[in-house]
């Protein structure tokens, strides 16, 4: 039961990263890829009908975390108070950026909301990466399971860390590059002509950086947290995950170069999901690692809700997610294919 809910939370967060990931990637890239306001509008229209639904995965995932592992939710959210509030502000800015920009057709209005949308998307990717970095590095958990982290201290990984240190900055950078590349693959899939060419070029240029930073972050992780390999040693089949990560990276490059847009997009999706799977496999059964004393770790065993809640929850959760999956299939089908260049007033 506990492993099931751990997996469900992990799957929801992975779904969020993969789905809203390309929204964020497109948000970052539109600043660089679009040369005219019309091109920008086409790029943003590739995510227009889906971004809000994709963001719901964050709410549903966060809610599921609250429901299944209340101690983790309480400890993590209050401990990461400052960066989380900033993430909320950025989500607000991203939302109004994308939704309000088309209301007026004047250079200042458009410039304001385009910039708002692009910059908040970029900062969100960095924050998400750094957040994951914090979870893997560990936080100074106190005896009752709480902590509080300032934004930064001495930028070192030690007993008194901040949200940002050299390790979490690498993680933030990794997320920014990975999501930008993912967004480029998505944009290539949904556009034609010149925009499509530029999106593919962006993906190709980001690729070497992604490989380098992935390798760097892996090495850094093993340097600061060698014990994360324990699960892998115990269950060597898990080594398939890093192998698949490498495979998906290779696929993203190879398929992208051959113009197989859908396959390349699936590869970057798989890359994101597998990186998260690799991290989840390494930390389980821990949910939040202590930076000082492993006995203080928050684990699935000490953080979960009552058995009855969790058992009943599985029923309605499955039912609700089946419905949600149905809506997603419907919406993505309504919206399949490439975005035409024509800008019309009504209808898709």
């Amino acid at each position: 039961m506990l492993l099931t809910w751990f997996l469900l939370v992990a799957i929801m967060l992975a779904a969020y990263v993969v789905l809203d990931g390309f929204d964020l990637g497109v948000g970052v890239l539109h600043l660089f890829l679009a040369r005219t306001e019309e091109e920008r509008t086409i790029l943003i229209r590739t995510i227009g009908p889906v971004w809000d639904g994709n963001e719901v995965w964050l709410l549903a995932g966060g809610g599921t975390l609250y429901f299944a592992f209340p101690l983790l939710y309480a400890s993590g959210f209050s401990g990461f108070y400052l960066p989380l509030m900033m993430v909320l502000w950025l989500l607000i800015l991203r939302g109004i950026g994308i939704e309000l920009r088309m209301h007026l057709d004047t250079p200042v209005w458009r410039g304001l909301f385009n910039g708002c949308f692009g910059i908040s998307s970029l900062l969100l990717t960095v924050f998400y990466g750094a957040a994951l970095g914090n979870v893997i590095r560990g936080v100074p958990l106190q005896r009752h399971g709480y902590f509080f982290l300032p934004l930064w201290t001495d930028w070192k990984v030690g007993p008194n860390p901040g949200i940002l240190d050299w390790y979490t900055v690498i993680a933030g950078l990794l997320a920014a590059i990975a999501l930008a590349l993912h967004g480029a693959n998505y944009a290539a899939l949904k556009t034609t002509g010149e925009l499509n060419r530029r999106a593919r070029l962006a993906a190709a240029r980001l690729w070497p950086a992604l490989v380098a930073v992935t390798a760097l972050s892996l090495a850094a992780t093993l340097f600061i947290r060698p014990d994360l390999l324990d699960n892998y040693q115990r269950l060597p089949v898990l080594y398939a995950i890093p192998a698949l990560v490498a495979g998906s990276l290779f696929g993203a490059w190879r398929l992208g170069r051959n113009g197989r847009e859908r396959a390349a997009f699936l590869c970057s999706s798989a890359y994101l999901a597998l990186m998260l799977a690799g991290a989840a496999a390494a930390v389980y059964p821990n949910l939040l690692l202590s930076a000082t004393d492993p006995s203080l770790n928050i684990t699935v065993f000490n953080a979960h809700s009552g058995e009855h809640s969790l058992a009943v929850g599985l029923i309605w959760w499955s039912f609700g997610m089946a419905l949600a999956a149905g809506y997603f299939v419907f919406v993505y089908r309504m919206f399949r294919g490439k975005i035409a260049g024509k800008l019309d007033g009504h209808g898709y």
């Binding site: 939710y73 959210f77 209050s78 399971g145 419905l323």
Partner: peptide, 29 residues
């Protein structure tokens, strides 16, 4: 609920976590 009301969230997650997830799963989607 988590950022500002951690002690509350910790003891009530098993109850009110449920309608909050249900809101996301059944209505926001």
């Amino acid at each position: 609920f988590g950022t500002d009301w951690a002690q509350f969230a910790r003891v009530t997650g098993g109850v009110i976590g449920q309608p909050l997830v249900m809101e996301g799963v059944f209505s926001f989607f």
